[in-house]
Design a protein around this nucleic acid. Structure first.
Length: 699
RNA sequence: GCUUCCAUAGCUCAAUUGGAUAGAGCAACCGCCUUCUAAGCGGUAGGUUACAGGUUCGAGCCCUGUUGGAAGCGCCA
């Protein structure tokens, strides 16, 4: 199902070419949503921008385009406004058919991309031996959402956790533990992570103050990097312990990630430096090996270096990033690499990408993107921290959100004289709390700094998760009531009757479940082979034909067998039924049981969607924009656009809900409205799941 | 000193490759519950888009400068 905007753009392209020639075949017709509802639904601004190249009056250009525009199937006749805008209004009939198509598709009309890319999303990246804190919040949440959206669009996404598990701080920590807590280096989980963090601080303090200890720490790094057995073992213990701790947070946030820390690239570092040398980029400066950068200068105007190997032979994180790029473009065969880190690292990435391009580590056809985000600040506008001035632990932050959500819910239940079970309340609070933190983050333009405020994110009004969840609950409320009444047009509809499966449906299924169908493809191959074999046998048979009587005997045998088979298996009604049933079972086994989501039957059998009231039309038009919004987020990586879409969808649904009674309406409007509710619910659920947020049936 | 990012209503934020009258929510004020969860809906008010120029049919968005804020800048990551 191609989006309305795409279809209009194509029609405009054709009209442009028809009016002004082939050289305009690549000109974007600038079809966008209307800036104001009074102008219609969509508008094209192309006439204005062609004024100069065509040396014509924009009104005239617009007229010439409109004369050649073939959109009468889905639009009212276009209107040309003052300076040269072309305004379009969609026909309600067309909206209804589009909605029906969307409703019959379990992907809600969102097609998978035609050319899937291998995409790496590098996000979260906490440090071993430290706890996850607010600093990791945005990367983790934004990165996960971006990954989910790209996956949904059909890309092959590799989610990488570039954890800080290597470098001087480990020498320091291990050296310190050797002196103070040797048992922690021998046995697993001898210390909990909280203690580890304290010890890390103490180690750092000693490192800064005590020169002798600095030397010990450095030697420890050398031991570790050269692979000394005991150091390595200690390091592994520390990593494992942190890993368990991180996993608790990831589980709670429902985030999956593949760990590939800095240490992973360690063996590749010398090779990177050699490579830089071999392509002539490497220069030695004051004992350090550097690559000089373009566009970066110091006070005196000299070019700045990117240091890839320190005087003491150690490597920098820039080197690790270069090695990672090399591995990701080489071994992982990535087409697009996305780094979700704070905006402060912008310069670093520009530098690394520049060097990587020059050194051909990064081929032309691979896109690298830094997805920056602003810092999390407290209400006071300063960096978020505890009263004591420490960084806020992620765990505490989530606990606080959930606990506030719980209190809020409890208070509301009392006010409304509702009684709910404890597990119900806990579940609602957990989902609302965690989702609120996620949504508050995702709904802001990530480039700006972000003021963290529990009250705002848990507010029931405005662009917040409780508002969206409540809207979903409303859709489900209608559904529940409907089931009680028991005459639902929706619930009585067979969830995709197997008998009615269309070729298109099957094609879609195959696309969606390729791994499942792979054996099928292999089977087809085998079948083709068998046919060839049979062909050969037939040829042999023909040859046999020349032998007297032999062929007659064969024919007779075959004919008798066919008769017997038909008699036994096909002629009797009962047998036929059983056969059909078995076939049905096989089909079901093969295609899987239909989704639990109420899926409407394919075109032809479905109830009609009727759009009469303003709020129905507004809701319908908004529902149909899902594809465009997702395509936009896929391209620009701004999840707040999706949030905005879902928020507006909720607003429009709530307006519809106020203005249009659903269950009390007469048929066929009643069914039509039920279908709008169902579609809204599914769109909200899908949209939220792409933000890493799950819905609630009741709250 | 240099580089990058940011500056929109009292507050928190939107504004789709430059498009028509810059939109929401909060806070304030005024309405709407015998009716599918009022955790909702409607309305009023609130703006020289930090400032000054420029580019063009057209600028919150692009360019230059100024002011204010944040981050980074040779051997930490």
């Amino acid at each position: 199902m191609s989006s309305i905007q795409t279809q209009l753009t194509q029609k405009f392209s054709h009209a442009l070419v028809a009016a002004f020639g082939d050289e305009f075949s690549n000109t974007d017709p600038l079809v966008v949503l209307a800036s104001n509802p009074k102008f219609g639904d969509y508008q094209s601004n192309i006439a204005l921008s062609l004024t100069k190249p065509l040396q014509k009056n924009p009104m005239k250009i617009a007229q010439e385009i409109c004369d050649r525009l073939e959109i009468s199937n889905f639009c009212e006749s276009p209107e040309i406004a003052k300076p040269g805008f072309i305004n379009l209004t969609l026909k309600p009939d067309y909206l209804a058919t589009q909605l029906a198509t969307m409703a019959s598709d379990r992907r809600l009309g969102v097609e998978k991309v035609k050319q899937p890319q291998k995409v790496i999303v590098d996000f979260s990246s906490p440090n071993i031996a430290k706890e996850m804190h607010v600093g990791h919040l945005r990367s983790t949440i934004i990165g996960d959402s971006i990954a989910r959206i790209l996956e949904f669009r059909g890309h092959d996404v590799l989610r990488l956790n570039h954890v800080g598990d290597w470098g001087t701080q480990f020498g320091m920590l291990i050296a310190y533990l050797r002196e103070t807590h040797p048992e922690a280096l021998m046995t697993a989980n001898a210390l909990d992570l909280g203690n580890l963090v304290t010890l890390y601080r103490q180690a750092k303090k000693q490192f800064d103050e005590d020169e002798a200890f600095q030397e010990t720490a450095r030697q420890e790094v050398v031991r570790l990097q050269s692979g000394a057995e005991d150091s390595r073992h200690a390091w592994q213990l520390l990593c494992e312990q942190s890993r368990q701790e991180f996993q608790q947070i990831y589980d709670r946030l429902d985030i999956s990630l593949q760990e590939r820390g800095e240490s992973f690239y360690n063996p590749l570092l010398p090779g990177v430096v050699e490579h830089l040398d071999s392509v002539g980029l490497l220069e030695e400066n004051e004992g350090a090996k550097c690559v000089f950068l373009e566009g970066f200068t110091n006070k005196e105007g000299d070019r700045l270096p990117l240091i890839v190997q320190k005087t003491d032979g150690g490597f920098n994180y820039a080197t690790t990033d270069l090695a990672a790029l090399q591995y990701r473009t080489g071994k992982d065969e990535a087409d697009r690499i996305i780094y979700v880190t704070d905006a402060g690292q912008g310069n670093h990435f520009v530098q690394v990408f520049q060097v990587a391009r020059k050194a051909k580590i990064l081929p032309e056809n691979v896109e690298v993107v830094h997805v920056p985000f602003g810092v999390v600040k407290g209400k006071d506008g300063k960096k978020l921290q505890t009263r004591a001035g420490d960084t806020v632990r992620l765990k505490d932050l989530l606990d606080e959100a959930v606990s506030r959500a719980y209190q809020d819910l409890d208070k509301r239940l009392q006010e409304n004289n509702r009684t709910e079970s404890e597990p119900f309340k806990e579940n609602v609070a957990e989902i609302v709390g965690i989702s609120a933190v996620k949504y508050a983050d995702l709904s802001q333009n990530r480039t700006s700094e972000y003021i963290f405020n529990y009250d705002k994110m848990l507010d029931l009004k405005g662009n917040t998760v409780p508002y969206l969840l409540y809207t979903y609950v409303r859709t489900q409320g209608i559904g529940r009531k409907e089931e009680k009444i028991g005459s639902s047009a929706l619930t009585t509809v067979e969830p995709v009757s197997i008998a009615k499966i269309s070729p298109k449906y099957i094609q879609q299924q195959i696309q969606d479940n390729w791994p499942t169908f792979k054996p099928m493809a292999i089977a087809s191959g085998v079948l083709v082979t068998i046919i060839f074999v049979i062909d050969a046998i037939v040829k042999i048979h023909l040859a046999i034909h020349h032998i007297p009587l032999f062929s007659q005997i064969l024919q007779f045998t075959g004919f008798s067998y066919t008769l017997w088979f038909a008699f036994k298996h096909l002629l009797f009604y009962k047998k036929r039924q059983q056969f059909k049933q078995k076939l049905e079972e096989k089909k079901r086994e093969f295609l899987g049981t239909p989704d639990t989501v109420k899926i409407l039957p394919p075109a032809g059998d479905r109830a009609e969607i009727i759009l009469q009231e303003d709020s129905e039309l507004i809701l319908a038009k908004h529902l149909l924009q899902l594809t465009d919004v997702l395509a936009e987020v896929e391209r620009d990586l701004y999840p707040n656009r999706l949030c905005q879409y879902l928020y507006e969808l909720s607003q429009k649904f709530n307006q519809f809900f106020e203005n249009c009674p659903v269950l009390k309406a007469e048929e066929p409007v009643r069914t039509s409205r039920l279908m709008l509710c169902d579609l809204t619910a599914r769109t909200l659920k899908q949209g939220l799941s792409l933000l890493g947020i799950s819905v609630l049936e009741r709250m």
